Simulated scan of single mutants.
Amino acid sequence: MEQAKDINRLKVVLVEKKRTGKWLAEQLGKDPATVSKWCTNVAQPGLETLVQISKVLEVDIRELLVGTKLTM
């Protein structure tokens, strides 16, 4: 069974900002279970939602994503 790769850093950024998933869910008008899935990388927020999250947390959107290297 293949492990899912971490795509976002939302859980880490929330800890750095001393905020909870429940708080973020309230700010975005989302279900806390949805935010929990994002934090555990079970599901991913859409691009528009990532923009909202970056504004609410006052971080650059790139801080919410795990960096990748392009190989050609």
Results as ranks from 00 to 15, higher is better:
56 V>I: 14
31 D>N: 14
65 L>M: 04
28 L>N: 06
37 K>P: 00
19 R>A: 10
55 K>F: 10
19 R>F: 06
50 L>Y: 05
60 D>A: 13
25 A>Y: 12
49 T>R: 02
27 Q>I: 05
49 T>H: 07
35 V>E: 12
16 E>V: 06
56 V>Q: 09
58 E>H: 06
56 V>W: 05
60 D>M: 02
37 K>Q: 11
57 L>D: 04
43 A>W: 06
46 G>D: 15
39 C>T: 08
27 Q>R: 15
47 L>G: 03
37 K>H: 10
40 T>C: 15
54 S>I: 12
39 C>F: 06
15 V>F: 10
20 T>D: 11
19 R>Y: 10
15 V>H: 14
36 S>D: 08
34 T>N: 05
39 C>R: 10
43 A>Q: 09
36 S>E: 07
28 L>S: 08
29 G>Q: 00
60 D>T: 06
33 A>F: 00
39 C>I: 04
61 I>V: 15
19 R>D: 03
26 E>N: 13
37 K>M: 14
62 R>P: 00
56 V>M: 09
30 K>I: 09
54 S>T: 11
28 L>M: 14
31 D>T: 03
23 W>I: 12
36 S>C: 06
19 R>V: 08
33 A>D: 11
21 G>D: 10
66 V>M: 13
42 V>D: 14
48 E>H: 03
24 L>T: 10
64 L>P: 00
24 L>C: 06
59 V>K: 02
52 Q>L: 12
59 V>C: 01
65 L>Q: 06
26 E>C: 07
65 L>K: 02
26 E>L: 12
47 L>E: 07
34 T>L: 09
51 V>A: 13
34 T>P: 00
32 P>F: 01
19 R>H: 12
59 V>G: 00
58 E>A: 09
52 Q>Y: 05
25 A>M: 08
34 T>K: 11
28 L>A: 07
22 K>Q: 12
51 V>P: 00
64 L>S: 02
32 P>D: 01
39 C>K: 05
22 K>G: 14
60 D>N: 13
31 D>E: 09
27 Q>C: 13
16 E>A: 15
64 L>E: 02
44 Q>L: 14
17 K>M: 05
57 L>I: 08
24 L>V: 10
40 T>V: 12
45 P>Q: 08
60 D>L: 00
21 G>T: 06
